[in-house]
Simulated assay, not measured.
Amino acid sequence: MVTENVHNYYETELKSLINTDPRLRGKSSDYVEDVICLTLNQLPSFYVRFDVDATAYMAEDDIISIQDRLKAALGEAIKQVDAYPHEPD
């Protein structure tokens, strides 16, 4: 059984946000992966097959709320990673 379409909606949205966030430019992949994990751990699971199907039935206020929640979680995750930086190997 193939289920590659099922994914956490927040993951897709977060990856888009990360690509445009200036605070993450030039950061190592370890740093960004830590930020991704800490961000997603703050958010509820929201599994969908197709993103467009999820947003097609959401009210605009719900979409804005998801974006706001995601941005707040990302900011908090960046603070956490910055507070406890990795030591180089």
Rank of each mutant, 00 (worst) to 15 (best):
N5R: 02
I63C: 12
V48E: 15
Y10R: 03
V6L: 12
D21E: 04
C37G: 12
P88C: 02
M1C: 07
L17H: 01
S45I: 00
I36R: 14
Y31C: 10
S16Q: 14
L38F: 09
D34R: 01
S28K: 05
G26H: 06
Y84C: 06
F46L: 13
L14M: 11
T39H: 06
Y31H: 14
Y10Q: 09
T20F: 04
S28T: 14
G75W: 00
H7T: 11
D30R: 05
T20L: 08
Q42W: 01
E60D: 15
T55C: 08
I63D: 15
V52N: 14
L14H: 12
E11F: 00
E4S: 06
G26T: 10
E11L: 00
V6G: 08
D21H: 00
A59P: 10
D53I: 00
R25L: 03
T3Q: 13
F50N: 14
I78M: 07
L14Q: 14
Y57W: 08
A73D: 10
T12K: 05
S29K: 06
A56P: 10
D34P: 02
Y9G: 13
R69M: 06
D51L: 00
T20G: 11
H86A: 08
E87T: 08
R25A: 06
R49W: 10
L24V: 11
N19G: 12
T12C: 09
Y57L: 07
I66V: 13
S28F: 04
K15F: 04
A56S: 10
G75A: 05
K79S: 10
P88K: 07
V52C: 09
T55D: 14
P22G: 05
Y10N: 15
D61A: 08
I18D: 11
D21W: 02
R69G: 05
D53L: 05
K71I: 02
R49K: 06
S65E: 15
E11V: 01
Y57P: 02
Y47K: 06
T3H: 12
D34T: 04
I78H: 03
L43A: 04
L17Y: 02
K79P: 01
N8I: 00
T3E: 15
R69Y: 03
I66K: 03
D61R: 08
Y57K: 09
E76S: 02
V52P: 06
P85F: 03
K27S: 08
A56G: 11
G26L: 07
S29Y: 09
R49G: 05
L70G: 01
H86K: 07
Q42H: 09
S29A: 09
E13N: 12
Y47C: 08
A54P: 13
E87N: 09
T20S: 14
L24I: 11
V6N: 12
N5S: 10
V52S: 13
A73V: 04
C37R: 13
E4F: 00
A77S: 10
K15E: 15
L74W: 01
D68Y: 02
K71D: 15
I78L: 10
N41K: 05
N5H: 06
F50A: 11
E60P: 03
D61F: 00
S16K: 11
I78T: 12
